[in-house]
Amino acid sequence: MQMTISGPDVRDSYSVITLPPLGALRAMEAAARHSSFSKAAEELCVTHSAVSHQIKLLESWFGKELFIRTGNGVISTPACSEFSKLVGDCFGLISEASNRLRRLGSAKSVRVAAIPSFATRWVIPRIPTFQREFHDIELEVCYAPQHFKGDLAGFDVVITYFDGKYVGNLHSKVLFSGALAPVCSPGYLQANGFVADIATLNQATFLHDEERSTWIAWLAAQGMAPGNAQVGTVFADFNLLSTAAIAGHGVALCPTDLIREDLDAGNLTQLFADEIFLERNYMLFRQDAPTTAAQEFCNWLVDETSFAKAGDRKQRVARS
Score class of each variant (00 low, 15 high):
Ser76Glu: 11
Ala31Lys: 08
Ile68Asn: 10
Glu304Ser: 03
Ser38Asp: 09
Leu278Arg: 13
Gln2Trp: 02
Gln190Glu: 15
Lys165Tyr: 11
Glu275Gln: 15
Ala32His: 12
Arg126Met: 09
Asn169His: 12
Lys149Leu: 02
Arg100Thr: 08
Met224Pro: 01
Pro116Trp: 06
Val174Gln: 08
Leu284Trp: 04
Gln295Ile: 03
Thr291Tyr: 02
Glu138Arg: 14
Thr205Leu: 08
Ala265His: 00
Thr292His: 10
Ile198Arg: 14
Gln131Tyr: 15
Gly164Asn: 15
Pro125His: 10
Phe285Ile: 07
Cys142Val: 04
Glu65Trp: 08
Lys173Glu: 15
Lys64Phe: 02
Tyr14Cys: 07
Asp209Gln: 07
Pro21Trp: 09
Ile55Pro: 01
Ala252Pro: 06
Lys39Met: 08
Cys298Glu: 06
Glu43Ser: 11
Phe134Asn: 13
Cys142Gly: 05
Met3Pro: 00
Arg69Leu: 13
Val251Trp: 09
Ala50His: 06
Met28Trp: 13
Gly105Asp: 04
Lys64Gly: 02
Glu296Lys: 15
Gly88Asn: 11
Leu86Gly: 13
Ala32Gly: 14
Ser177His: 09
Leu301Lys: 02
Asp197Gln: 14
Val317Phe: 09
Pro226Glu: 07
Glu42Gly: 03
Leu175Tyr: 06
Lys56Gln: 11
Gly187Gln: 13
Asp151Asn: 12
Asp288Met: 10
Leu253Val: 07
Val112Ile: 15
Gly154Lys: 00
Phe37Gln: 08
Tyr161Thr: 13
Thr305Trp: 05
Arg26Ala: 14
Ala40Asn: 08
Glu43Cys: 03
Asp288Arg: 15
Ser213Leu: 07
Gly311Lys: 09
Pro186Thr: 10
Pro128Ile: 10
Gln230Val: 10
Glu42Arg: 08
Pro290Val: 05
Thr291Glu: 03
Asn299Met: 06
Met28Asn: 08
Phe272Cys: 08
Thr4Asp: 06
Ala196Lys: 14
Asp9Met: 05
Asn99His: 06
Ser38Phe: 05
Asp136Trp: 15
Glu96Tyr: 01
Thr305Arg: 00
Ala119Ile: 02
Ser49Phe: 02
Cys298Arg: 00
Glu275Ala: 15
Gly178Asn: 09
Pro20Asp: 07
Leu93Tyr: 04
Cys90Tyr: 04
Val302Gly: 00
Ala204Thr: 15
Ser6His: 08
Phe67Arg: 04
Trp122Glu: 14
Ala107Asn: 06
Ile124His: 14
Leu258Cys: 02
Asp257Ser: 07
Ile94Met: 07
Asp89Lys: 12
Ile159His: 01
Leu284Gln: 02
Asp209His: 11
Ala221Leu: 10
Asp237Arg: 09
Asp274Arg: 14
Pro8Lys: 05
Lys309Pro: 01
Arg26Thr: 12
Tyr166Gly: 09
Ala181Ser: 15
Leu86Pro: 03
Phe155Trp: 00
Pro125Tyr: 11
His147Gln: 05
Arg100Asn: 10
Glu133His: 11
Ala204Trp: 06
Asn202Cys: 14
Pro125Lys: 11
Val183Trp: 13
Leu258Gly: 01
Trp300Phe: 06
Val251Ile: 13
Thr243Met: 12
Met224Lys: 15
Leu207Tyr: 02
Ile137Cys: 14
Pro290Ala: 04
Thr160Ile: 03
Gly92Val: 09
Thr200Glu: 10
Gly223Met: 07
